[in-house]
């Protein structure tokens, strides 16, 4: 492909205050592909996701979106370029209702006229949210909050969808659903950057895998190669399955 990848990290280091969490991380997400980031606790997966959306600024290195340097750009500017980030855990506005949470996002993305349509799609995706549209998001159950977070980014169909701990807290039946939707969204042209603990799910959808370990990239390559070359790595994960 001749076009620039949607997202590219070039030798990115980042951290929190004096603490360094990433050391020279480089990888790219070409248009229309799905990349999975895996790695143990504290490896820096969340930090990578935050760097991609501008929540954490790199201390060195560059972040490119569509070939343009967005290092140091404000989070909202990155978001306007079509990077939608669903942060880890339950990231909802607890004091706003379900509908207000979604409206906030859709009004910005679709304008006044498109909002209703967006809401309808979100409720179709997760009927539970439709039943609870007036409930304060803070009082939803853990999984329901996760649905709300995901509904937002899935409906937006952004250029790049960054999802951290994608299926965390979701019941198996919902996880299946979410992955089906992800497949659809991807077919419609959205590139995916997924952080996921459930390796089998992640590997099933991902074209490329980035293995992070202690803030460094340990492996980048096609998903099936990870299976071949690092059988030992995987086996540790599979022994319980």
């Amino acid at each position: 492909m001749t076009t620039a990848p949607i997202l590219e990290l070039v030798d990115v280091s980042a951290g929190y205050g004096a603490f360094r969490a990433l050391f020279g991380v480089s990888f790219a997400v070409p248009a229309g592909t799905a990349v999975a980031i895996v790695g143990p606790n504290g490896a820096g997966k969340t930090t990578v996701a935050r760097v991609c959306s501008g929540l954490v600024q790199p201390t060195s290195g560059r972040v490119l979106v569509d070939g343009d340097d967005v290092t140091g750009a404000a989070t909202h500017q990155v978001a306007r370029r079509g990077v939608a980030h669903a942060p880890e855990g339950r990231s909802v506005f607890a004091t706003l209702s379900v509908e207000e949470n979604l409206t906030l996002s859709f009004r910005q993305a679709f304008g006044r006229t498109g909002t209703g349509d967006g809401l309808a799609r979100a409720y179709e995706l997760f009927p539970r949210l439709g039943e609870r549209r007036r409930q304060l998001a803070g009082s939803l159950s853990g999984g329901e909050q996760r649905m709300l977070t995901l509904a937002r980014v899935l409906v937006l169909e952004p250029r790049l969808l960054v999802a951290d701990e994608l299926s965390l807290g979701l019941a198996p039946i919902v996880t299946e659903d979410v992955y089906r939707t992800l497949g659809r969204v991807r077919a419609a042209g959205t590139a995916l950057l997924i952080v996921e603990q459930h390796l089998d799910h992640a590997l099933a959808i991902a074209d490329e895998v980035v293995v992070l370990d202690r803030g460094e990239v340990g492996f980048v390559g096609p998903a099936h190669e990870l299976g071949d070359r690092a059988a030992s790595f995987l086996s540790a994960h599979e022994e319980t399955v």
Partner: peptide, 16 residues
Amino acid sequence: DEPSSGLDRRETHDMG
């Protein structure tokens, strides 16, 4: 309450 969420397979196994 969902002690393994946020842990990967192997970490989950260790926790078990």
